[in-house]
Structure formats: C-alpha cells, structure tokens
Design a protein around this nucleic acid. Sequence first.
DNA 1: TTTGAAGTGGCAATCTATTGATGCAAAATG
DNA 2: CATTTTGCATCAATAGATTGCCACTTCAAA
Lengths: 169, 169
Amino acid sequence: MQNAAGSPEGQPLRDDDAARLDVANRLFLRLYQASNLLHKTGTRAVAGFGATTQQWAVMGALARPASRESGLTVKELIAFLMVSRQNLTAVIDRLVAAGLVERLRAGGDGRLRHVRLTEEGNRQWAAMGPAIRAYYQAALADFSTEEAVQLFRLLDRLRGSLNRIAEPE
Amino acid sequence: MQNAAGSPEGQPLRDDDAARLDVANRLFLRLYQASNLLHKTGTRAVAGFGATTQQWAVMGALARPASRESGLTVKELIAFLMVSRQNLTAVIDRLVAAGLVERLRAGGDGRLRHVRLTEEGNRQWAAMGPAIRAYYQAALADFSTEEAVQLFRLLDRLRGSLNRIAEPE
DNA sequence: TTTGAAGTGGCAATCTATTGATGCAAAATG
DNA sequence: CATTTTGCATCAATAGATTGCCACTTCAAA
C-alpha cells in the first residue's frame, strides 16, 4: 500500500508515472484507514442496539421505501452491498436469529428468497435513527454539503472502477 | 447505511439537514462498497505471492526508505495503519512465519520491538512491485491525476474526522 | 423431456478485525 | 526504592469477508 515507486528495482519511471503512483499509494492507504475507522466507530455508534455496521447496512437497505414491503432477494442484496453470498448469508443468519429479519419464499420464481424486515426489525431500525444521524453529523462535521457530494461522486467512480476489476464480463 | 432520513418517526428535518443526511447515507455506502472491493481485488492482485492487502500494507510501510533499515515499532505501525494491536500482532505473526519480516528488540528502550523486512521480505516486496503498479493503474484508469489528488485529500480529511471520533481526548 | 443454468443454502478453511482481560518487562515518576 | 505508566504479547470470544466445493430446487432452453 506504500511506496511501490520507491523500490530501486524495476525500470525507471517517468516523472508523471511516479507522481501518479505516489498519489495512488497515499489514496489507497487513506481508503484502507478510513474503512477501518468506519467499521470501528460505526459499530460503536450502534453497539447499544447490539448491531454492527454490516447489520446496519443490511437493515438500511431493507428499510428503504422500495423494499420495505416485499424485501429484497439475496442476489439484490449482494449487488447492493457488494459482498460475497457466503458472507451475506452469515450476516442475515445473525439478523434472523435476533428476530430483526425474515426469509420468505415469495411469489413467482420459486428459486428466490426474499429477505424482509420484521415488525421488530422496523422498530429497531427506527430506534437506531437518532444514533445514525448523530454519527453522520459527527463524521462530516467539517465537510460542507458540496464537499460531501464531491467525495461521494469520487468514491462512486472508484467503486465502479474497482467493480469492473472484480467482475470482468 | 441507508436512508436514515426515510424513517417516519422522529422530529421533522429541515430540508438542509435532510439533504446532508441523504448525502451521508450514499457517501458511507460507497465507502463501504469501495473498501470491500479494495480488499477483494487487491488481495487477488497479490495472491500470486501468497499475500493479502493487509500484508501488502505492512510490507509497504516497512519498505519505505525511512524505515527500511531499522524498521518500525509496533506502536508506529498501529498509528500508520490505524488498526488494533491485537489484529496487527496476528498479521505480523503470519509475515514472520513466512520469513518476510522479523522482530528485533533494538537499542535504547528495552520495551520497544522493531519490526523489519528480512532479506527475503525485501526481495518479495520488489517482486510485487509490478503487480502493485498494474493494480493502481487499472483502479485509477479513468481518474486524472488531479482527480486522484482531490479524492486523496477528501479521504484524508474524512480519515482525520473519523479518527477524532475514535480517539477523543 | 432431458439437459443445463440460475438462485440458494451448507460446510470448510483462512484471513482480517474488534473488544476485553491478563501478564510481563522496562521505563518514568513519586 | 516503591509505584505507576508504557510497550508489547497472549488468550479468548465474536463478527466480517474471501475462496472453493457440494447439493438442492426451480426455471428455461435444447
């Protein structure tokens, strides 16, 4: 993650490439650090509810108006969160065990299982709202709304770029 | 991670706050996704060397000119990578087992242990260089250098902000 | 109708990451 | 010198995340 440019071996780099490499090093280190801190501080923020950032993410996806009634399929959740199926299964299992989420084999396609918030899950999500809002406020305290949007857009593009690497079609 | 604003409960929000909340939701979801993809694609990029993104990060820190000779203390590595001591110990253990890194109780302060790249570790790091450069290039292909710098700066600020939440003093 | 692909679940192994508690050696402070 | 603090290690528990493989159901197409 650091200073691949600094290695004495390898062909000499043009100044331009060297600069980009240095930026890439720093950028990905910051992404790595920010991600670690996100999980650490985010999980603390909702620890009072026995939740973690991942459970928060799953519940947030299911709580959106579009998916509140019929839930989401496992496949949709995977696409939304960009995690592996095996990992998601374990997270859902814990949420099911906690009574916050339920698996349904709904309607048309018999292969599909929908995951949906339970009554209890909806109550829990509502209760977590203030903690989540406070967390966002603290984390983005010294960002203007414009800057936050800018960061979002850049992260969105980086995500797209990494996703293309991950799933070449 | 999604739509804390959408909950019907709670006091009504001013438009401004609602917009910021929405941005925050999207921003942190992107951070979460990008981080997952970073580990997935990054680990694949160096899998041929039996490495992972974390081992890559540790070796990168130790390979910098400033730490190449005498290494870094565990405390310095913790501050650099922003992970927990228990986690870092395990990562270092694996690197030691692989013969890429060594623990030294160097010089003055007898409490300090320096972690340093071995000969083999230096060779390995040099060999990983091309793969790392190729990964950076692919990941940032559609970013201009200016945009990459901009993303770095914003991530740096976010990291600082989250770190302040994590360690308030 | 047979065949194959898609969606899910289960199991195993490995690695990353956190918190919490205990312990020890060395340094700093009273 | 006694006490406290600092730096590090270890053990344990829990959660997140990946890959790889196998199995089952269901749908779609040959």
